[in-house]
């Protein structure tokens, strides 16, 4: 099995076998988790090209490359680059690619930006989020976190809650889950922020799913609760935010009646949708999830670079 030179634009650029192979490869990199640097990517350079603010994903890719012993070329904030002067994405990517980097990690607000970048660059491109479309490595780290907990993905009941319409993590996670068997997904969201039909049409027949508006209706069925943030400005009537905020906030009391081994996940950053009291509960996995992100990205980079 080889991922060498592969562009990762979508979750669908992986097969189920490749995803599980990456999980095993990530486990071999557990020294990274303990803060060790491996010298297997010495002399390799990854370009970190982020056209949107990001903390976790940017740091996670940077740390993954550095822990592998490689280096990064980060072009910094967009405001301080030629993009602010109106340079196109294609030109920026061609220029960076021309420097001979080994990998390009791209985050961009336009949907499909990573596909365009992959078309113009010789070096492999990893999509680190493009608009509301996809965030494939987020899905990979989400599945990896679930897999580390349950040793499998098949047969699990996963609740995805919050802004499912505009968030890119719910779509990528749904696509990734659709590669496994007998997975049931509960989409828990207010109607205006429910999962997009185009996402459902791609997973139809592959996962069983149910849309609902109240976590309490399904909490006892879930093995995984994946929480995302609802943003006031996304709602058709922003004044509804205060009312919805309570309904879509996870607290110890909203987890009453849950399975003993339920895990609560969140792509972070969180605001008010996940109370700090949950941090102390045995169900919380979001900080481990963030660390898993660095390890699985290191495994992915290692495989794409053929190391």
């Amino acid at each position: 099995m080889t991922l060498k030179g592969r562009d990762i634009v979508s979750v669908f650029d992986f097969s189920r076998d490749e995803i599980e192979y990456l999980f095993k490869k990530a486990e071999e990199l557990n020294d990274i988790r303990r803060g060790r640097t491996l010298n297997i990517a010495t002399g390799k350079l990854a370009a970190i090209t982020f056209f949107e603010p990001s903390t976790r994903t940017r740091l996670s890719f940077t740390m993954a490359m550095k822990r592998l012993g490689g280096d990064i070329l980060d072009f910094g904030e967009v405001e301080r680059t030629s993009i602010a002067k109106g340079e196109t994405l294609a030109d920026t990517i061609r220029m960076i690619d021309g420097y001979g980097v080994d990998l390009i990690v791209l985050r961009h607000p336009s949907e499909g930006a990573s596909k365009l970048a992959a078309e113009v660059a010789e070096a492999p491109v990893i999509n680190a989020g493009d608009g509301s479309r996809e965030h494939p490595t987020q899905a990979l780290l989400d599945l990896y976190t679930i897999w580390r907990e349950y040793s499998c993905i098949d047969g699990l009941n996963v609740g995805v809650m919050g802004d499912l319409k505009y968030g890119r993590t719910p779509s990528s996670l749904s696509y990734a889950l659709s590669m496994f068997s007998n997975v049931k997904v509960y989409y828990i969201a207010p109607k205006p922020l429910q999962i997009r039909e185009e996402v459902l049409s791609r997973v139809k027949g592959k996962i069983e799913y149910l849309k609902c508006e109240d976590l309490r209706e399904v909490i006892d069925k879930l093995d995984v609760l994946y929480v995302t943030r609802i943003q006031r400005e996304r709602l058709p009537h922003p004044e509804d935010y205060e009312k919805l905020k309570g309904l879509y906030t996870v607290t110890p009391s909203s987890l009453k009646g849950c399975k003993d081994n339920l895990i609560v996940m969140h792509p972070l950053p969180r605001v008010t949708e996940l109370s700090h009291e949950v941090d102390e509960m045995k169900h919380a996995r979001y900080f481990q999830q963030a660390v898993n992100g660095m390890v699985i990205r290191a495994a992915l980079i290692k495989e794409i670079l053929g190391l």
Binding site: E111, G112, K115, L116, E198, R202
Partner: peptide
């Protein structure tokens, strides 16, 4: 389906 943004 749009080949770039996946819009149907």
């Amino acid at each position: 389906k749009c080949d770039y943004c996946d819009r149907y």
